[in-house]
Amino acid sequence: MEVEVRHLRALCAIADTGSLHRAARLLGVAQPSLSTQLRRIEQELGGALFFRERTGCRPTPLGRVVVGRARPLVAEMRSLVAEARAAAAVTGPQLRIGSTASRALAGWLRRLRERPQEPLLQMDVSANALLRMVAEGQLDIAFVHEVEGCPLRIPDELRLRVLVEREPQFVSLPADHPAAARPVVRLADLAADRWMLDPTVDGEWDAVHRVLRAAGLSPRILHGDYQTAAFLVASGEVVTVCQPTSPSRPETAVRRLHGDPLGVRLLLAARTEEYLDAVFPALQDAYWETAEQAPAYREWLTAKGAPLPRGAPPTVVRRT
């Protein structure tokens, strides 16, 4: 079982109502069904999330961490659904966008909504799947990341723009981890930790394994999606690879890896140059806006030299 948005919604309802009975009524499900769902979620996350008392339910320490992280995700999903429904009602032209996960998405979509074409978004952890959808005409644009050492299968008919030639990947670890006291973390500092990776992300599993082996490490690696990894990092169970634009939170710390051993290339793909010309500047602005808001990444960029200014000419990938 994987923790899904509906499970997060259920946890928030239990915490808000303080009762399985009232939460079940709010969600429109039977109480026994909600109780069973809660037990499965707790088994998946590895601990009790609520104290069951005669007067109702209250979150355990782990439950407070999970619910605290779940609330903004549930709110964001509600907003996403509302935006999708609004977009579906638009009779004008629509721009079909595919993307892997990125903190720049919100700013990019906000900028694109100011234009005649209403953006519709489809998320996927597989960059290769999104590129195929663009080539087959199911999407107009795809914003994807290519893990270093694991080239994507890019259809010949696609045109590409490079947003960032090499974005370093950072590590997310519990805020009370000894290594979190330093701005730069060595892989050896994480030798005793469990790692969580999503094996469905194209190239990430192979790249991280390769980097860990090169460092002489063979830690225990768990499978899980980004959301599950975030919960378990916050509860002190795992560490995980993350984008440098990821925010630190009270329970977690985002830190640079010494030597920047992991990197990705950020690409925008379309079938025509006209599509790229239309949306690339907005993506470029959104990305650097997000980068400026991420302290660890901003420090890294400063140490390496100023990033490309907004509006700088893009790198065009040409095939020979």
Rank of each mutant, 00 (worst) to 15 (best):
residue 2 E to I: 13
residue 3 V to P: 01
residue 4 E to P: 06
residue 5 V to N: 11
residue 11 L to G: 07
residue 14 I to M: 15
residue 25 R to V: 15
residue 35 S to W: 05
residue 36 T to I: 11
residue 40 R to F: 04
residue 42 E to L: 04
residue 42 E to P: 01
residue 44 E to K: 14
residue 44 E to D: 11
residue 45 L to M: 08
residue 46 G to F: 04
residue 51 F to W: 14
residue 52 R to F: 10
residue 56 G to F: 01
residue 57 C to D: 08
residue 57 C to P: 05
residue 64 R to Q: 14
residue 70 A to M: 05
residue 75 A to K: 07
residue 81 V to P: 00
residue 84 A to T: 13
residue 87 A to T: 12
residue 97 I to A: 02
residue 99 S to C: 10
residue 105 L to R: 00
residue 107 G to H: 00
residue 117 Q to T: 13
residue 128 N to V: 06
residue 131 L to F: 01
residue 132 R to S: 03
residue 132 R to K: 11
residue 136 E to S: 14
residue 137 G to D: 08
residue 141 I to V: 14
residue 143 F to Y: 14
residue 151 P to R: 12
residue 154 I to M: 01
residue 154 I to F: 01
residue 156 D to C: 10
residue 165 E to K: 06
residue 165 E to A: 15
residue 174 P to I: 01
residue 175 A to E: 03
residue 176 D to E: 12
residue 178 P to W: 10
residue 180 A to R: 01
residue 183 P to N: 10
residue 189 D to F: 03
residue 194 R to E: 15
residue 196 M to H: 03
residue 199 P to W: 06
residue 210 R to V: 09
residue 211 V to L: 07
residue 213 R to D: 12
residue 214 A to I: 09
residue 215 A to M: 06
residue 218 S to Y: 04
residue 222 L to Q: 14
residue 224 G to E: 03
residue 226 Y to G: 13
residue 230 A to P: 00
residue 233 V to P: 02
residue 236 G to T: 04
residue 238 V to I: 12
residue 239 V to I: 11
residue 246 S to T: 15
residue 249 R to C: 09
residue 249 R to K: 15
residue 257 L to P: 01
residue 258 H to M: 09
residue 260 D to Q: 14
residue 260 D to N: 14
residue 261 P to Q: 07
residue 264 V to F: 07
residue 264 V to R: 05
residue 272 T to F: 07
residue 278 A to D: 13
residue 282 A to N: 02
residue 295 P to Q: 06
residue 296 A to N: 02
residue 296 A to L: 06
residue 298 R to D: 00
residue 301 L to W: 06
residue 308 L to C: 12
residue 309 P to Y: 07
residue 314 P to G: 07
residue 316 V to G: 02
residue 318 R to L: 07
